[in-house]
Amino acid sequence: MLSVYWNLVKHDLKYRSNKNFNWKTFRFWTYVYCILFIIGVFGVFTYGSFHWKINLTTIWYFLWILPFFTFGMAIGKLKDEFKNGTYGWWLTLPYPRLTLILAKLSACAIQVVQIIIGIFVLITVLGGYISFLSPEGSMDRFVNFVKVGLTWNVIVILFVPIMLSLGLVVGVLVQSSLKPFLGFFWLLWGLFWVFFNVFGTKDNFGFFQSFFQTNPIRLETITTILTSWILSFLILILMAKVLEKYIKL
């Protein structure tokens, strides 16, 4: 079963689009926009390092985009099977539904981690560049910047499973006869973020900033991560059942 699982993961790691999608054009424009974005960011920070007082670690706030990106990626991975007309092949593979979706989420997780590492390297280079340019730049400042980034990258990676499984909820429910429950999910999702922002706010800096300024490796963080893993697994089991019994074709 392990070899089947791994073969499924390898199969799901491939990026897929439908026949009408112009992959070459998409790739070309993605590269163009990425290069322009990187040039823009470096340009702004080059100017900024001479005229503003830059708190380097704030650059890592960018990482908060990643959990949402991960969530969307999980939805897309499932949606692709239905959009591309391959769901019939996928759902009639003679393996437990849990194996099928676990393989999809594992493939997603591998891709997300690759992206996180890529972003980490890019931001580290940017941080090093600013440290080098800035009059108050020092090696200690740069090392501290990398340490903060490394810690938060690892924490974001540890929350990848829960974001993937929440994406899976949307991806599966939308194709099932339980679709009306999606409204309930979005309501909970909205309430969670309200709670997260309102109750997480500390001092005058806001939740994210206070998080970055304190040591994140605390008992609450570890407990939250472990709870999120257990919750992810329970969601996986539940969605495997939905995929088996309530899928609407």
Binding site: H11, K14, Y15, R16, S17, N18, K19, N84, G85, T86, Y87, G88, W89, T92
Partner: peptide, 11 residues
């Protein structure tokens, strides 16, 4: 099983 209106993996 060959599903109705199916496609194969394009890649």
């Amino acid at each position: 099983y060959l599903p109705d209106r199916a496609s194969w993996y394009q890649d």
